[in-house]
């Protein structure tokens, strides 16, 4: 196991730990101030989950077909990077759908904390992403490597931020 893989695993574990801590804090807050989603938002979130899950299934169905068939073409992506892409596409679809249908944040949430959290996540990922483009580690021997993960995550957060910005603008015009 090389240093990068070890760092990657540590990064995933750190993100999971932070997510659990944030979840626990939110759960406590929820009890205190009744913050949550209303019935329409829960319905739309259900649709968003359905869409994300369907996308995930389609991706894997395509991959199974690809591995079964002999197309004489190698996907120029490392398996771990391919799995990352397959994971982040449905997540992005879920988030963008939820944002578009006003179901991303609870009805009491102001949205400012979300913005800053997502901007921070975008910046923290775009910097190593650009660095890996500059040092050429993102593509080795014509194959997209695991080093592309930061860039993929940055694109995901960028997409969500853009959706939040557009939705916010539309809402202001509507009011």
């Amino acid at each position: 196991m090389n240093d990068y893989t070890l760092g990657y695993i540590c990064g995933i574990l750190a993100v999971l730990l932070i997510a659990v801590v944030i979840r626990l804090i939110f759960r406590k807050k929820k009890m205190d101030c009744k913050e949550g989603f209303d019935e329409r938002q829960l319905f739309e979130r259900g649709n968003a989950y359905k869409l994300g899950f369907t996308t995930f299934m389609i991706e894997f169905a395509i991959y199974i077909l690809y591995t079964l068939g002999d197309f004489g073409y190698e996907i120029p992506v490392e398996p771990a990077a391919l799995a990352s892409i397959a994971l982040f596409i449905p997540v992005t679809i879920f988030c963008v759908y939820a944002v578009r249908h006003d179901a991303f944040m609870g009805y009491n949430a102001t949205g400012k904390s979300f913005y800053w959290l997502y901007i921070l996540a975008f910046v923290l990922n775009i910097i190593p992403g650009i660095m890996s483009i500059c040092d050429g580690s993102i593509i080795e021997n014509g194959v997209l490597t695991l080093h592309s993960t930061n860039l993929i995550v940055a694109i995901m957060f960028g997409g969500i931020l853009l959706a939040l910005y557009v939705k916010n603008k539309e809402d202001k015009e509507e009011e």
């Binding site: 009744k34 329409r40 006003d102 009805y107 509507e174």
Partner: peptide, 14 residues
């Protein structure tokens, strides 16, 4: 109205 009934403004709009 949304605040009075405990939903989002967008829900009332919808």
């Amino acid at each position: 109205l949304a605040q009075a009934v405990g939903v989002s403004r967008q829900t009332i709009n919808a």
